[in-house]
């Protein structure tokens, strides 16, 4: 499943010179980033900084204007179905859709299964593991309209886990969930990373970034700093852009600050 040209076998994602626009609005302006297998890369940045756009580009949901995104050496849309699991920040689904928690989590198996392959024991086991990992066992038969916000979020993370993806993209999964859920999510993500899964995740929570991520990138339309979470946070880049964003909006020169790992 690796491509013809030379790819570092440990490399999961390579983003090169990525420009993404929504009409006249520039969302990302020359982003360079890389993510290896067995690594969690955190993306932080102010609201409207293009964090979600970055994730959607890696998921193959947005077409870059310039530059490239490669996942395992291929364009995201050329990957085998089931390779990428994506959990959006806000799920814009119809909550009255006839589906239980278990039904939604089972959908995670669909991309790999194709049309004819039966839903096997292995698929059922993957769904059960995902439900257990997100503490949804008791809620499995509950209709999705009867879930709290945190339970909804856990259901969609469970669907991503059940997919057994090769790359996991999480868009602010901790927003709006309680502390216990956040901690169990962190433990789960860390254990998946230890097993070799590359994870790309956006967050607002700077305080615990070092516990979540191996590397941290500060993004505001471009990458302002990237490296070890402690070093990046210690460099003051984030504090600076916060202040600038607050007082001057988004119009400002790129920062000179660069935290090296």
């Amino acid at each position: 499943m690796h491509s013809e040209h030379s790819v570092n076998p440990g490399e999961a994602v390579r983003i090169h010179g990525l420009h993404v626009c929504y009409g006249p609005v520039v969302a990302l302006d020359g982003v360079n980033l890389a993510l290896s297998r067995g690594q969690a890369l955190g993306i932080v940045g102010p609201n409207g900084s293009g964090k979600s756009t970055l994730l959607k580009s890696v998921a193959g949901l947005l077409q870059p204007k310039r530059g490239s995104v490669e996942v395992f050496g291929r364009r995201p849309t050329d990957l085998r179905p089931g390779t990428i699991a994506y959990v959006p920040q806000v799920e814009a689904v119809d909550w009255s859709f006839p589906a239980t928690v278990e039904d939604v989590v089972a959908m995670g198996r669909f991309p790999r299964l194709g049309a004819i392959a039966p839903f096997s024991k292995r698929d059922r086991a993957a769904v059960d593991r995902a439900l257990a990992a997100l503490r949804l066992g008791d809620l499995r038969r509950r209709h999705i309209s009867q879930l709290s916000g945190g339970q909804q979020q856990r259901t969609f993370v469970a669907r991503a886990i059940a997919q057994e993806p090769e790359l996991l993209l999480l868009d602010e999964p901790t927003t709006g969930v309680d502390a216990a859920t956040e901690e169990s999510l962190r433990v789960l993500v860390r254990s998946l990373v230890e097993q070799g899964l590359p994870v790309l995740m956006t967050t607002h929570d700077l305080d615990r970034a070092a516990e979540w991520f191996d590397r941290l990138a500060v993004v505001d339309r471009r990458v302002l700093a990237e490296g070890d979470p402690q070093v990046v946070l210690g460099s003051g880049v984030y504090a600076t852009i916060r202040e600038h964003t607050h007082t001057h909006g988004h119009r400002r020169d790129p920062l000179e600050h660069r935290a090296e790992p």
């Binding site: 998921a59 949901l61 089931g82 990428i84 689904v93 589906a99 997919q163």
Partner: peptide, 10 residues
């Protein structure tokens, strides 16, 4: 149910 995530998953 969820066209966006379905597309991301390939």
């Amino acid at each position: 149910f969820d066209p966006v995530v379905a597309q991301a998953s390939g």
